[in-house]
């Protein structure tokens, strides 16, 4: 049955049981929405997913907003968003409260000394995987390298880079459209 409570509960479940970010969530959401509850078709879901990935913000939240809106309008999108944000908020809050008390514990520090380099690897792997999947041309290549160098070495804010590139891309697209 389609109700605000069911929608809320669906996203509470999704975000409680998916560990490791957006992509891990996809299979769980699809299973509930398409297979179990039959609230939408597979095609509809894939469509929403494609948009949620490209839009600004977090894919998990974007998907919740989109699904909520499609199913139950504005209120639906608010309810779905709350459902997806509340569980991680409560869990992390609890961890923050406990963990900050043990921050200076030597055993904990030793464990995290081992974990830190692994975390760097966890960020490096998707970077390389995305770079391998991307169809490169020289504009894209320069864009990626300059972005990396500006942020990492010159400490330029990523926000400015996104803004400038977005505006230039909009003008280029407009110009191409005009020529056709």
């Amino acid at each position: 049955m389609r109700s605000y409570w069911n929608l809320f509960w669906t996203f509470v479940k999704v975000s409680t049981f998916t560990i490791g970010g957006g992509m891990a969530m996809v299979a769980v959401v699809r299973d509930i929405l398409v297979e179990k509850r039959k609230w939408m078709t597979d095609d509809e879901f894939m469509d929403i997913l494609a948009i949620s990935q490209t839009l600004p913000g977090l894919m998990a939240v974007n998907t919740a907003i989109f699904v909520g809106y499609r199913l139950m309008g504005t209120k639906g999108s608010i309810v779905a968003t709350l459902g997806s944000v509340l569980p991680p908020f409560i869990i992390i809050l609890a961890i923050a409260m406990i963990f900050t008390g043990y921050k200076d514990n030597l055993t904990i520090e030793a464990i995290f000394k081992g974990i830190r380099p692994a975390v760097v690897a966890l960020i490096a792997v998707p970077t390389i995987k995305m770079a391998l999947k991307q169809k490169w041309n020289w504009v894209y290549g320069i864009l990626a390298i300059v972005t990396m160098a500006l942020i990492a070495f010159l400490k330029v804010s990523p926000m400015y880079i996104i803004l400038v590139v977005g505006v230039i891309a909009a003008f280029v697209a407009k110009y191409r459209e005009g020529r056709q």
């Binding site: 995305m130 990626a144 390298i145 990396m148 891309a169 697209a173």
Partner: peptide, 22 residues
């Protein structure tokens, strides 16, 4: 096409962002 063009330009940018984070 403008919306699509902007989204397209963000793809290599995201790779640059991730590389910088690393």
């Amino acid at each position: 096409p403008v919306f699509a063009g902007v989204l397209q330009s963000f793809k290599p940018l995201v790779i640059g962002l991730l590389a910088a984070a690393t």
